[in-house]
């Protein structure tokens, strides 16, 4: 079995998730080659063929051309699968490649299961085993699901890829930096976060009161920030801040993977949720099955005493 791994490069840097692709190929027992639209100065530590296209020429977000580059490498290597990280780069590019090859795509693989791929459904409350029916397939892997066993090492043998034309339907304008962080949650020892389960904006102060009773900061999950209940500077997760406090209290947070990725390194995790099956229960040290708006005020009163 041979895998073509599609590395990631952004703002002039190789992204570490690139190494998760190699870890996945190893778990699959597949030989691999890699493709990167990047630069000579940021080569991945990887023993093997690296198809390298110049990001200065083909852009960092230019899916039409990146698709053509991937197809060139597919032509040369005839791989059984083409593997992307399930990221803003991967989920955008992978289906374009899949359509061009008329290959089936399995998205956001979290585990391998006897030659089939396991993916989540319904906010990780169910899991599916998916099998490709096309001879060749496109795969995207969940970030963090396949971690390299040690420090990456190796020296790639670069092979240059070029396209004859550089016309593209998409004009990339540039990056916009993350919003200025009003609160630096990364240094907080205690974080008490509000999720959709708090019910409404008026209830957020109840969660903030517990944060303050524990000498900590208020955090929030994405839905709460999107709804405008809490400012974005408090958001914990993939698109917010990554935190590692001594204590993390998740109030009414179901535990979407994007949230878990931002807080699972906390030393001790308490979740308060009325749904005993909520995915947050999988990583919580203690799951309190209760209505947040009943439990939190009672607990805050006890802490303050």
């Amino acid at each position: 079995m041979k895998a073509l791994l599609i590395g990631e490069y952004r703002q002039g840097k190789l992204l570490d998730t690139t190494y998760e692709l190699k870890a996945f190929a190893d778990r699959l027992g597949a030989d691999s080659v890699m493709l990167l639209v990047g630069s000579d100065s940021e080569l991945p530590k990887y023993d093997g063929t690296l198809y390298l296209a110049d990001a200065a020429k083909y852009g960092e977000y230019n899916p039409d051309q990146h698709k053509q580059l991937v197809l060139q490498a597919v032509e040369k290597e005839n791989p059984d699968c083409i593997v992307f990280v399930h990221s803003s780069y991967g989920w955008d590019l992978a289906p374009r490649v899949a359509v061009a090859l008329k290959a089936g795509q399995v998205s956001e693989i979290v585990a391998l299961n006897e030659g089939a791929y396991e993916v989540n459904a319904c906010n990780a409350k169910l899991r599916r085993t998916v099998t490709p029916k096309s001879g060749r397939c496109v795969l995207t892997i969940q970030a963090g699901a396949f971690t390299p066993s040690g420090e990456p090492q190796g020296t790639p043998q670069p092979e240059r890829l070029e396209l004859s034309g550089t016309a593209s339907a998409i004009e990339f304008v540039g990056y916009e930096a993350a919003e200025q962080k009003g609160v630096d949650l990364s240094k907080a020892e205690v974080i008490v976060s509000a999720g959709r389960g708090v019910g409404k904006k008026d209830n957020v102060p109840v969660i903030a009161a517990l944060a303050s009773a524990l000498g900590g900061e208020l955090g929030a999950s994405r839905p709460v920030v999107d709804a405008g209940w809490v400012d974005h500077s408090h958001q914990v997760g993939t698109t917010g801040q990554t935190v590692s406090p001594k204590l993390y209290v998740a109030c009414g947070i179901s535990g979407a993977i994007q949230h878990l990725a931002g807080m699972k390194k906390a030393d001790f995790i308490v979740a308060i949720n009325k749904d005993k099956d909520a995915p947050i229960g999988e990583i919580a040290d203690v799951l309190v099955v209760a209505d947040v708006m009943q439990f939190v005020p009672a607990f805050t009163a006890k802490c303050a005493r």
């Binding site: 008329k102 399995v106 599916r128 919580a284």
Partner: peptide, 19 residues
């Protein structure tokens, strides 16, 4: 081009204490 072979609740990893 792809098929669901099975669907099932994820295995509980033991997790923590449930109160």
């Amino acid at each position: 081009l792809t098929a669901t072979a099975a669907i099932y609740p994820p295995a509980k990893k033991g997790g923590g204490l449930v109160l």
